[in-house]
């Protein structure tokens, strides 16, 4: 037996095994590779396939979010507005506020009781606080986002406008993205068991309205802009002021910019 197969070069069993491997490989190429071709075309055509509630072209927007720390009073109106707008379950947050208190000796105290939903109690650090401020946080809608790269089923994606969204019909709740997000902006929804996060109120944006958090901020600390809209004031802030992003060393390219952020802010 052995000799015979050696003489013939490739035996029948070996041949079949190879053939199966080849076909399997081809199948993988077809399943995996096909999409990139389609995607390139669809994006180039720029939303030729327009659907949705009204005339709205995703590819003609690019949203930016700006937070001015000097204006944030830590009232929690944004957190409560987000909860009402998006049915965010209790004790989970799509946006939240952190209070930073820095002592003269450099100690940093950060707290966020119930995400700032009920604002803050007067502080009891007992330290000699030399500066303090509130930092609202939300999904940074990164251009180069780890959460989308980590998703094994293509449920996390970046919309043509640059908004990071979750397809909850496709999400399997593996929570890789929850662990992978450097900003802690995702959670597994306790009833749907799928990943949940800030959608930048996508359903409001497509209707020409701003996000719930921006609309309900009493001091204008939160701002939403559109880089593809001519003369946009918020895009102008990003273009002309000294803006900061969170964890720039990770090169996630956030679209959430902070004005007047101190170095303690992570």
């Amino acid at each position: 037996m052995c000799e015979r197969s050696e003489n013939k070069g490739v035996g029948r069993r070996d041949f079949l095994r190879l053939a199966a491997k080849g076909a399997g490989g081809m199948a993988l190429v077809m399943v995996g590779g096909g999409h990139s071709l389609v995607s390139a075309n669809a994006v180039r055509e720029g939303g030729a396939d327009r659907r949705g509630p009204m005339e709205y072209d995703p590819s003609s927007h690019r949203y930016l979010y700006v937070i001015d720390i000097d204006k944030c009073i830590g009232c929690g109106s944004c957190v409560r507005a987000c909860e009402r707008e998006n049915d965010v379950p209790k004790h989970f947050f799509r946006t939240w506020i952190e209070r930073y208190q820095v002592s003269r000796t450099g100690e940093v105290f950060v707290d966020s009781p119930n995400g700032g939903h009920d604002s803050f109690e007067p502080s009891e650090t007992g330290a000699d606080i030399s500066k303090a401020f509130f930092v609202p946080k939300l999904c940074n809608h990164c251009d180069s986002t780890p959460c989308v790269q980590l998703c094994p089923v293509g449920a996390s994606f970046v919309s043509p406008e640059g908004v990071v969204l979750v397809d909850d019909k496709r999400c399997i709740g593996c929570s890789y993205c929850v662990q992978g997000c450097p900003y802690g902006s995702r959670f597994i929804h306790p009833t749907t068991h799928t990943a949940s996060k800030c959608t930048l109120c996508y359903h409001r944006l497509v209707r020409g309205e701003t996000t719930a958090c921006v609309q309900n901020c009493p001091t204008g600390a939160r701002m939403l802009g559109d880089a593809r809209s001519l003369g946009d004031k918020v895009a102008e802030i990003v273009a002309t002021s000294k803006v900061h992003v969170l964890k720039p060393e990770l090169h996630t390219e956030p679209k959430c910019f902070y004005v007047n952020a101190s170095r303690e802010v992570r």
């Binding site: 096909g34 999409h35 990139s36 389609v38 995607s39 669809a42 994006v43 396939d49 949705g52 995703p58 293509g154 449920a155 996390s156 994606f157 970046v158 919309s159 043509p160 969204l165 397809d167 019909k169 496709r170």
Partner: peptide, 12 residues
């Protein structure tokens, strides 16, 4: 799926 990227376009 794949109509505009590696995701289900209808989700949008």
């Amino acid at each position: 799926f794949g109509q505009a990227g590696y995701y289900r376009y209808d989700a949008l």
